[in-house]
Every structure is written in C-alpha cells, then in structure tokens.
Amino acid sequence: MAVIRFLRDKWFYLLLLVLALCLPLLITNRYHFQIVIMGCLFSIATLGMNLILGYTGQASLAHAGFFGIGAYGVALLMKGGLSFWVALPLSALIAAGIGFLIGLPTLRSRGSYFAISTMCFGVIVSIVAGNWIDLTGGYNGIVGIALPTPIHLPLIGSVGFQTQVAQYYLVLAFLLLTLFIMHRLVHSLLGLSFMAIRNNEALAGSVGINTFAGKILSFVVANFFAGLAGGIYASLMGAISPSTASLDLTFNWLIFLLLGGAATLAGPVIGAFVIPVTMEYLQSLAEYRLIIFGALLIVVIIYFPRGVMGAVGNLRQKVRDFYDRKKGAKGAAAG
C-alpha cells in the first residue's frame, strides 16, 4: 500500500527522474549535451543561492566568489597531486569555512547593506585571484586542470569522465544529491526557522530562534554548494581565471533564481535551464539579444514576481478554482 501511495503522490517526480536518467539516449548532439551539463552544474550553484536568498531572505551577492574559491581549490589541489574526489569536498569545505568567517561580520548588516557588503567580498575574491600571481596564475588563470579522476566500481570496472555521457551522470548525481539535501533541509525544523527569519527576523528572535546562528548556518551551507559547483566546473572546463568568480555569474544565478521561482526547489533548476536555452536561441539576434534580455528581465520581475514557479502555481490555483466553482454550481443545482 505504501508503495502505491508513494507512486501515486510522486509519479511526476519519478517520471522526471527516469527521463533524466535516459537523457543520454535522447540527446546525441554534443552542443545540446553541453548546455544540459552546464544547466545541471549551474542548478547546483543556484540551489545554494536559493537557500540563503530564497529561504532565509538574505541576498548574498558573494556567491560567485565562493564558486571561484571552490574552483581554485580543486584546480590547485589537483595540480598538487590530490584526487578529484578528495579535492572536491575539501574545496567545498574551504568555501564553507571562508563563508563562515565572512558571514560573521557581514551578516550583522541587513537588506541592501548585506547585499552590498557581500558584493564587495565577491569583487575582492576576483581581484585577489587576478593579483596573487604565485598562487592563482594571475589573470591568465590556471589551465590544464585534469578531468575528474576515474573511479573504480565493482563489476563495471574503472569509469572515466572523458565522455559527455559520463560527465552528465556526474553532474546529475551531484544535482540530485543537492536537491535531496535541500529538500530534507527546508522541510526540517531548521528550514522552518530559516523561513521564520526571512518572514520576520524580530518575531523569529522573540520566539526563541537564534536568528544570527540561523543566518550563519544557511550562509555556510549555501557557500558549500557554491564551492562544490565551482570545483566541478574547474575540472570539467579545464581552465579557470578570475572571471570564474566574477559578479556577472552572481547576477546570472540571481536571474535564474528569481525568474525560476525563489524559495521553491524546482525554481532554481528551471531557471538554470530555461534562461541559458533562451539565450542560445536568441544568438541570431547578435547584439540586440542583450537588449531584449534586459527588457524581458524587467517585464518578468514586475509581472511575474514569483517567477515560473509562481506562474505555474497561479495557473493551478485558477484551474482548481474553476473546478470548485463547477462543482459548487452542480451542487447548488442538485440542491
């Protein structure tokens, strides 16, 4: 019975999962594959941002800074001889640790102040990356970063990551892991306290939530995932530079997040796919593309403030209302 109920409730998600797992059979075009891989990768980063911004209500603009820290971490540790599978969690932890240190001073401020002080930190990361030449290679960055180290599986043997299919399953696995953790987190008591902080910090404080600790924790976890995404990015792209930590990336994710739908789990993923795909379609418009993109941004944020997920929610609500009314009308007629 439990299985049937599970299937009935979650059939849609299971279908999506099966679809995701079978995707390599459907896509044979390397270009489309590349976009899907990057979409998964940026979904992870955007989900991280979603935790601090969407659920906790603190607009961190240092996200690309932490993505960059993760990327440089993996690049340097792998160049130092470590396996990808050691370098990646280590780098994500470093990003989380620096996030903790930066969160202590910056999270004392609120709203726009917090946004701007984190933005300043993000800019500092990319300036340091550009100028600490001995460590980071300066503006040329680090090139020739190896692909993820092959893993040895029982029965299957050694699995390398040269092919796009392998790379896809790699990022998909991390994306599912991220989604799983985020799902558990936001539906836990802790997640509720994050949302309480977002909705009314003073009220949350007065009912006994340690709001500062809550904010720090959310910030640290968010930056862990930013670092994780950055680490995978470095290994897949093979070359990083200070632009890997640039504010433009933060802006991109912010747009993915808000247009996809903040404070939902599907929203960041939808945004991370829909917007890059749209931009690829608009390539033929050449330089006019960005003008249209900018205008679209303003229109969407004004008329669909809760993004795609908000619009979907509204639609569902309307459909439900319609049926309810119909039912009501029938009931009235019968009565």
Binding site: R30, Y31, H32, Q34, M38, S243
Partner: peptide
C-alpha cells in the same frame, strides 16, 4: 560567428554548437 562576451563557458558552448550544427 557567435558571441561569447568574456565568458569561457559560452565559448565552449559556442564551439560545440559550431562543430555540431
């Protein structure tokens, strides 16, 4: 010709696209 701004991610996407299409 495709535009990449200053973004290496776009550069790789574009290269894939040029090669595939």
């Amino acid at each position: 010709k495709l535009d990449e701004g200053l973004d290496p991610t776009a550069s790789v996407n574009n290269s894939r696209r040029l090669r595939d299409q």
